[in-house]
Each structure stands twice: as structure tokens, then as C-alpha cells.
Design a protein around this nucleic acid. Structure first.
Lengths: 343, 343
DNA sequence: TTGAAAGCGTTACCAA
DNA sequence: TTGGTAACGCTTTCAA
């Protein structure tokens, strides 16, 4: 009952297989009445054009690969994925996902097997740098390589990233401009196997503070680094509370640190913005609910933009701008306030 | 430089194309020395077996479809997807995603085009019911149909769901057992186009309350329904605050309602668990941070279980249990407390 | 606007 | 353990 092929449909519709093929893939080349006949016959026979067979002939796989460092369940990754989907799905592409390309062993596995070779039309790399040797291997699969939030553009045909450093510099400057004197930067330790784009944020914070000091500002700042893991926020909380003096401002590497801090510090009597200002980064889940002032970035839009570039590259079209860098946006809400020193 | 096919590799390795094919897809059938020769030649020629060509011959597409009502960025969907991936990726499958199969028009589009026909080896349907006519159409694609959190199992070959009704009944019973007298159920309005599994939760709440009353409990309960949309929690907050009398317990359809409520009610002087108990459902983002007592479900595990069933079905193997129903688990944290009426 | 025919790069059967 | 060979189901010139 299920296996009817293009020949059966052709016979049923009284046309050639060429016409059946065209009726599906280039409807405009077929007279409407013929097309209707074909489509009707196809439906009756439970037929649909086979993607794989077409692929074989055309050399287009209609598939792209997406390499991610962590799991797709993270806020950033899920939104990048959805953004890619929003343009690739309608263009007829599937996304073949490769998660956890972050440990030494998963990376080696991937880059030596190179399972995507000859099997995808483009490769997206989200949020990590590829080292020179890996880049050379990727090049050999001979399809466009598009980066999303990558630390450097070498070896990518196109990319869409945010300027993490400038973003965090803006965040710190905002706190400084508010008059804060004692600012701590709460962040998770950098991974040793991958050069996460997120690490640039720490530099932005430090630069802003040093600039302010050079300009004569009397501020005191420090970086509070806690181990990576599921309890980043709790570690940060503990570190913060055991400081000799509680800061008047906290600059967080990401909302995922800031939000728990806001909620939990409250239980210890530290209320924002009354007692301290705090700023996040991402504008992710619940940032609005928590009324968190933060630096907004839009990974969904980044994914969509990256996908549009990929489509052009696949079609051999030139790009207006190969590498796009976006500025995260200071989003003012309720966790920041001017600081008035208690004399 | 890039287009070498199986023949080139065969020549370079001094073997037949059959051997090359086997070296990749059934390494165990090829002598190790031969296999090494082939793999080496392949690497030199920048070759890798083409999935599409294999597909054509074997009839296996190595692709499955996943139908979702909303976007993959939602907590539930992202975790289901990751769970599916965790078993399907290694089995060699890609997931072809169909999002937003929820409005009348996207549904009709999908079910009349049936783009997956002959193009996938299985279809997963997450979190919505298919109506009888749609079911009939799905059947015609002649591959296993697996449901994830579907309201009824008719027309599915297998499924993994949670018992939403029993889960919410447990939640309500917990509140009742704590001695609460005035309980409100905060939920979003049911969608009119799809029969979301989530709607069963409301029934669970009502049943628990009615049972308690029949058993002589002196409780007062009501259902607070707010329109769907991004500001569900704010609508619920407003509705709650405009009640003639503030309840002593709130039972929420999902954590996404409970968490903002906990945070915002606080600003109005209602502190949990001091002034009221509140329970969520899902154990999603920040439930632990918010210290929210909730009913836990594990969509990642559900996705993984569904994927394992699909694999068996594809291989024609029998299932130990076609339809699995999981019980969400009462997860006690800090937003519930015994209720002592102020005399 | 339609048809005929030559592949596309594999897999799997059968034979050696 | 390996090789020869006939499909697999389509797309795409080229011709009509």
C-alpha cells in the first residue's frame, strides 16, 4: 500500500516521470491542468517526492551541521537554533546537530571523523573558537563555515557575533557613572579546552574600571571567579557574602548569575537597588520578571542572520558583509540606582 | 579537489567499491589491513560515505520528524528535543523540525502537504492531540507515529506522557492536607485550536477540591483563568490582587506562572510561605533558585524514552510497553507551609 | 509544455 | 573476505 514511485504516478496521471518530477520541484514549468492531474494522482497513490533521491542527483544535501559547545537546552543555544530554523526550514534544510563539541575527546572525535564531510551544505559553529589545525580540517569539507559568536573570524567564511567586550565595558561604565565605588565582577571560570566568546566580557569589565581609575575616579573593583558548574550562583553568593565588605555594585557575566543573586541576597538583607546595584548580561529567562537591568543580546536574530548568510554562500552569491558584529544593548530596569555614599 | 567518489577511493586503495562501502558501513566485515588501506585512501582523497546515496538504496532516510505546537525555545520543547537527540544522534538520525503546528493554518498546511511522507522514518508529535482526520492522514505516511505528552493514545504507535491530571491532583491535595482553606488555581486559557495536554491539569485540581469537599473539608476554591500570552504572570498577579480576599494557597498550572508570582507578590507584601503557600508544576528554570515547591516532570527523559521506542519500531521490534505514563513527582521546597487560621 | 534517456553514489545480492 | 553488477528514485539535458 505504501510503495509507489514516480513511475506509478506518471502512469496514473498519464504523463512522463519528468513531468511528475517537475510538478513537484518546479511547478511553474508545468501547465496548471497537468500539474493538478499529477498532484491528484500522487495524493491518491500516497506519493511524495523523495528528498534523498533528489539530493543524489543534484549534489545538494539540504542539510547543514550545527556545532555547539554545550547542550541545546541552554538559553543561548536554543535561541540560536530557533533563529536558524526560522530561515532554514522554509528553505528546505534540516539541521544536523552536534552538541558538546567541547571536551578534548568530543572535539577530537568530531574533527577526525568529520562526519559532515560530503553530507552537509554548510557548517555552523556556535560559541567557540576552532584551533588552526581544526580549521584546516574543516576547510577540507569544502562547504561554507559560518560562525556564531566566535572569538575570531579567521577561518570562517562568515559570522555573526556580539561584541562581548564592548558590551561588558558599557555595563561597567554604567555602574561607575552611577557613582558606585566598590564594584565586583561575578563570573564563572573560563573553560580550559575552549575559548568561549564569553571570556571577552571579563576584559571589558577590567578595561572600563582601569580607564575610570586612570581618569581619576576613586573606585575599587575586583573579579570574583567561581568554578563552572550548576551551582555557579550559589558559589558566587557565598563568595560575595564572605567579602570583608559588601560591594555597592555587582556586574555579572550573565543573567544566570545575576538573577539568583538578586533573589538570594534579599534573604540576607541586601536589597537592590536600595543597597546595591546589579547588572546582568543576556536578557534571558526571567530578566524582565526580576526587573533586572542588563545588557541585551538577541541570539535568535543572530541565528537568523547567520542562516541568511549561509544560504547566499551556498548559492555562490556574494555577501554584503561577511562578518557582522552586534552591540549588546543596555536595558535599564529596576536593579540599578545612583549611589550616594553614607558619609 | 573535492569530488572524489567511491570509485576513486577503490582505485587508490586497490580494492573494489563494495569493499570501500563495507569499510565504512560494516567495518567488521572487512579485514583490518584492508580497512586501514581504504580509510587512509579515503582520507587522502577527502572522501566520506554519502548518506543520501545510501538512503536511496536502503529506503531508510535516517531522518525523523518532530512536530511541536510552539517554539523549540520553550523549556519543555527544548528538553524533549535534547532528549530525543541524545539517543537519535548516535543512531545516525537527524531530526527534521516542524514548529508551530498549532494555528488552524499551519496545521492545515502541514497535514495537506505532508512533507514528511516518504522522507522520514518516524514521526514524533509533542504535546498536542491530532484529530481523527489528521490521524488518518498521518497513518498514510506509513511510518511509526510516537507521541510525547499527548492527551490520548489513539492513533499513536507508541507514546510517553505524564499524568497531568494525577500530578495536579497531588499538588492540590498537598495544599489541602496542609490545612489551606482558600485555594486558587492560576492557569492560562486553553487554546481553542489544540487540545494541549496541559489542560488536564485543571481537571486534576478541580477533582481534588471536590473530593475534599465531599469528604467534609471546609475549603473554598476557584479557578483563575487568564488569557494566553507573554504576560500570563502579570495578568494572574492582577487578578489575584483584585480578589475580594487574598487566598492562603495558590496552585499554579506551571512554574512559569508560579515563579513570577512569588517574586512579584512579595512587592505587595504577600510573602511565601509566611502568608500563603504556592506550588508550581514542571520544575523548570529557576524553580530551585526560587525555592519553589513544585511537581517535577522530566521532558528530557521523556524524549529519550520516546526515541528508544521509535528505534525499535523502525526496526520492526516489539515494544515492551507501547504507551508509558509517568507520574510527576511532588518536590518539596520552601514555598509551602501548614496553614494555621488566624482565629 | 512535455518526453526519453543517462546518470547521481551508493548497497546488497550472488559468486568466487 | 572480497568483487561484479543490478538496482534505488529521482533530476536534467536534449529533442520534440
Amino acid at each position: 500500500m505504501n510503495t509507489s514511485d514516480i513511475h506509478d504516478v506518471a502512469k496514473a496521471a498519464g504523463v512522463s516521470i519528468s513531468t511528475v518530477s517537475r510538478a513537484f520541484t518546479r511547478p511553474d514549468l508545468v501547465k496548471k491542468s497537468t500539474r493538478d492531474k499529477v498532484l491528484q494522482a500522487a495524493d491518491k497513490l500516497n506519493f511524495n517526492i523523495s528528498r534523498s533521491a533528489g539530493t543524489l542527483k543534484t549534489g545538494r544535501t539540504n542539510r547543514v551541521a550545527l556545532l555547539m559547545n554545550e547542550e541545546i537546552t541552554s538559553w543561548f543555544n536554543a535561541h540560536v537554533f530557533a533563529g536558524l530554523e526560522s530561515v532554514l526550514h522554509d528553505a528546505g534544510y534540516d539541521i544536523s546537530l552536534y552538541q558538546h563539541i567541547d571536551t578534548a575527546s568530543t572535539r577530537r572525535d568530531f574533527f577526525t571523523t568529520l562526519p559532515v564531510r560530503r553530507n552537509v551544505d554548510a557548517v555552523f559553529v556556535a560559541s567557540f573558537a576552532v584551533d588552526p589545525e581544526e580549521a584546516a580540517q574543516l576547510k577540507r569539507i569544502n562547504v561554507p563555515i559560518i560562525g556564531i559568536n566566535i572569538p575570531k573570524t579567521d577561518s570562517f567564511d562568515a559570522s555573526v557575533s556580539i561584541d562581548d567586550e564592548a558590551g561588558m565595558r558599557t555595563a561597567a561604565q554604567h555602574l561607575i557613572a552611577l557613582g558606585h565605588r566598590h564594584i565586583v565582577y561575578a563570573c564563572s571560570a573560563a573553560s580550559d579546552t575552549i575559548d568561549a566568546s564569553i571570556d571577552a566580557r571579563g576584559r571589558g569589565f577590567i578595561n572600563a574600571c582601569e580607564d575610570a581609575q586612570r581618569a581619576g575616579r576613586d573606585i575599587q573593583w575586583q573579579v570574583l571567579t567561581v568554578p563552572r558548574g550548576s551551582d555557579i550562583a550559589d558559589s558566587a553568593l557565598a563568595a560575595l557574602l564572605s567579602l570583608p565588605e559588601f560591594p555597592d555594585a555587582i556586574c555579572c557575566q550573565m543573567d544566570m548569575i545575576a538573577i539568583p543573586l538578586v533573589m538570594k541576597l534579599q534573604r540576607y538583607g541586601h536589597i537592590t537597588p536600595r543597597d546595591y546595584s546589579i547588572i546582568g548580561f543576556d536578557d534571558s529567562h526571567y530578566a524582565d520578571t526580576a526587573n533586572l537591568t542588563t545588557m541585551r543580546q538577541d541570539p535568535w536574530a543572530m541565528g537568523a542572520a547567520a542562516a541568511r548568510k549561509a544560504l547566499k554562500l551556498i548559492d555562490g552569491e556574494p555577501l554584503d558583509e561577511a562578518h557582522t558584529v552586534l552591540r549588546p544593548q543596555l536595558t535599564l530596569r529596576g536593579t540599578d540606582a545612583p549611589f550616594v555614599p553614607q558619609s
